[in-house]
Design a binder for these strands. Sequence first.
DNA 1: TTTCTAACA
DNA 2: TGTTAGCA
Length: 113
Amino acid sequence: MIILDKDQMRRNTAIFPMSSAMKLTGLTARQIRYYESLSLISPERTPGNHRIFSMNDLDILLSIQNYMEKGFTMKRIGEILNEPHKVDTPEILKYNEYQRPLLNRGDLSRFFQ
DNA sequence: TTTCTAACA
DNA sequence: TGTTAGCA
């Protein structure tokens, strides 16, 4: 199927400015820009060159937070997110069990821990 | 006023 | 990563 799922399209719609990404993920602008440089996320840009994030971008950012909390290095996280074939290691699978549910179904509980 | 890039402590 | 300078 060439056309993405309706929901997937909406989740890929970029509308959040840096300030929103920072509040929603708890990350600093510096960190977010750094992760983009590692191709972990690919936010769109406004005509003025300002980044605009989609829900999927934020979701990835949240996942990065999870991995960091579990002690993964940015190098390792980069491999995990950019090269799926490296994810099937006992090491990763073990931690994936603790991954929180993705940003969907209107579940906002993740924002209130 | 907010965000951006680049670069240095 | 933090922070700051100088732009847009």
